[in-house]
Amino acid sequence: MEKELIDRLAIRDLIENWAVWRDAGDWERFATVWHDDGVMMATWFQGPARDFIRVTQEGWKKGVSILHFLGGSSIDLAGDRAIVQTKMTISQRGDVQGVLCDVVCTGRFYDFVEKRDGRWGVVLRQPIYEKDRVDPVDPSVRLELDRKALAEFPVGYRHLAYIQTQIGYTVKRDMPQLTGAEVEALYARGAQWLAGEKL
């Protein structure tokens, strides 16, 4: 029981460090939350964690502003493996058709984590996108969105995809949302991971 409690505390610490160190630009420590084969999935990037760190740094230099806020976590623990779901918001500030805006997306981080050589690390991070919105930073400014273009994106991250496309990113359009085949497949993959299967 004591070992399980220590593992749960270490896992929660890992998840919180991810958000704090990434958003602070503490790249050396941010790299330590991942295992060497770690993979990051996001609307605008899918691939190895080391490449995610690099492209995030490049985005910072271009003025891309994406921040994260965490809520509660649920940890399903199975020996040296765990699935961690953490409530979160993604907040991105940027130009939308000449208007400075904030897009806020609410969802969950769904993390595949593993303890290797006594250290917990992220093997795969897959966000689940539940709902989002866009607001001008100056509420007196009128924002006119292209409704047809907006409707082409998945409902759970429609506004986030819209702003990311506006600044030049290619957005993945089949990410898990609150319901649907993609999130059900993710849950099944998580159960297989906890049962000892490979990703």
Rank of each mutant, 00 (worst) to 15 (best):
Q166G: 10
Y187D: 08
C101R: 04
D138P: 00
K62S: 12
G168L: 04
L160G: 07
L70Y: 07
W34E: 03
F45G: 05
T106D: 11
D138G: 09
L5C: 10
S74N: 06
I66M: 09
T170A: 13
T86K: 11
W193G: 01
G71F: 07
S65K: 14
R8C: 03
I66G: 08
G72W: 13
L77K: 04
Y129S: 00
V122P: 00
D36K: 05
A78R: 10
V122T: 10
V183F: 08
N17G: 10
F109L: 08
W27N: 03
L70I: 04
V96K: 06
L160Q: 09
R29W: 02
D135S: 15
C105V: 11
H159K: 09
H68E: 06
K62F: 00
L70K: 08
T89E: 09
L67T: 13
G63V: 10
K62C: 03
L199V: 12
R29C: 04
T165N: 12
M40D: 13
H68I: 02
S65D: 15
C101Y: 00
T43Q: 04
K198C: 10
I128C: 04
R116C: 04
W60P: 13
N17L: 11
I90C: 10
F153A: 08
M88P: 01
A149E: 09
K62A: 14
R81T: 07
E2H: 10
L194V: 09
W193V: 03
E184H: 04
K131Y: 12
Y110H: 13
M88Q: 02
R8Y: 03
W27G: 06
V103Q: 08
I53R: 14
G107T: 00
G107W: 02
I15S: 04
N17H: 13
K61T: 12
E197G: 09
D138R: 11
A24S: 11
E2F: 01
Q126I: 00
R119Q: 12
